[in-house]
Amino acid sequence: MSADTERDPPSGDGDVSRKTVPDREGQSLLEVRGLDAGYGDLQILTDVDMDVAGGEYVTIVGPNGAGKSTVMKSIFGLTSHMGGTVTFEGEDITGLRPEEIIHEGIGYVPQNDNVFASLTVRENLEMGAYILDSVPQDALDAVFERFPILEERQSQKAGTMSGGQQQMLAMGRALMLEPSLLLLDEPSAGLAPDFVDDMFDRIDAINDDGTAVLMVEQNAKEALRRCDRGYVLANGRNRYMDDGDVLLNDEQVRKDFLGG
């Protein structure tokens, strides 16, 4: 398993060794190298490396405050960049604004405030294609096919929907431009327990259809069970990286980060 040298405790600053990433679609989509980032003058991430291959499903786990969400926001141009590079499909996107990154083919679903509560379901979905001259009907139809409840309730105000339905709407809006990579920040947060498995199944289906997924998830065991590869962050640094099932079954990772 790839891990930091000598297995320092979670508060340590060791770096992971790198493992060759299997490319499921023959093309590396995302490469993060030596990323330093934060908010204003506050640095959260230090020398973070990360890869997502074409069509791959990758999960980021770690304790609260580890910098997991900051990685996602940094990729999407929402933090202060302090060093390192972010490359997507061979193009340097470091420092681009979110609207420019959307053009490159990356969709992002934040954990909080991820729908326009006062707009209808259909209006929310149309907002997902705001960079286009017109809403692509085929993309809208594809979202409705994936999430039938959204078609049924397309005239309903988003703010009146359940948490799980709002999460589906947020994902549907991010899929309106048919991105090559979907960033999901804590998609199961706040969902009723009986809806969590359904949400994971829907993410699996999105990935099975060819969209690469990079996900931050609080339900670390379930996320690692389903993903191709996982990263463990602690104190804003890489700590472990390996196949999801390897991390899930590693004694040290389970003890330090998964509750035994």
Results as ranks from 00 to 15, higher is better:
84 G>H: 07
87 T>R: 14
87 T>I: 15
88 F>E: 01
92 D>S: 08
94 T>S: 07
94 T>K: 01
95 G>L: 04
95 G>V: 04
97 R>A: 13
97 R>H: 11
99 E>D: 15
101 I>H: 05
101 I>C: 01
104 E>F: 11
107 G>Q: 06
110 P>R: 00
112 N>T: 13
113 D>Y: 11
113 D>G: 12
114 N>I: 09
114 N>C: 10
115 V>D: 02
120 T>I: 09
120 T>E: 09
121 V>D: 03
123 E>N: 11
128 G>M: 05
129 A>S: 12
129 A>Q: 01
131 I>V: 15
132 L>M: 12
133 D>Q: 15
133 D>A: 14
134 S>I: 09
137 Q>S: 12
140 L>S: 10
141 D>I: 04
142 A>R: 10
145 E>D: 15
149 I>K: 14
150 L>R: 03
151 E>T: 06
152 E>N: 05
153 R>Y: 08
154 Q>F: 09
156 Q>Y: 10
157 K>W: 09
157 K>G: 11
161 M>S: 08
162 S>Y: 04
163 G>P: 04
164 G>H: 02
165 Q>M: 05
167 Q>W: 01
168 M>F: 07
170 A>H: 04
171 M>F: 05
171 M>Q: 10
174 A>M: 07
174 A>S: 10
178 E>A: 14
179 P>H: 03
179 P>M: 04
180 S>E: 15
182 L>Y: 03
187 P>M: 05
187 P>F: 02
188 S>H: 01
189 A>W: 06
189 A>C: 10
190 G>D: 07
193 P>G: 01
193 P>V: 00
195 F>N: 13
197 D>I: 00
198 D>S: 09
200 F>I: 04
201 D>S: 07
202 R>N: 10
203 I>C: 06
204 D>E: 13
205 A>W: 00
206 I>E: 09
210 G>W: 02
210 G>F: 02
213 V>I: 14
216 V>Q: 03
219 N>H: 10
220 A>N: 03
220 A>W: 04
222 E>Q: 09
224 L>M: 03
224 L>Y: 00
226 R>G: 03
227 C>S: 13
227 C>A: 14
228 D>Q: 07
228 D>L: 05
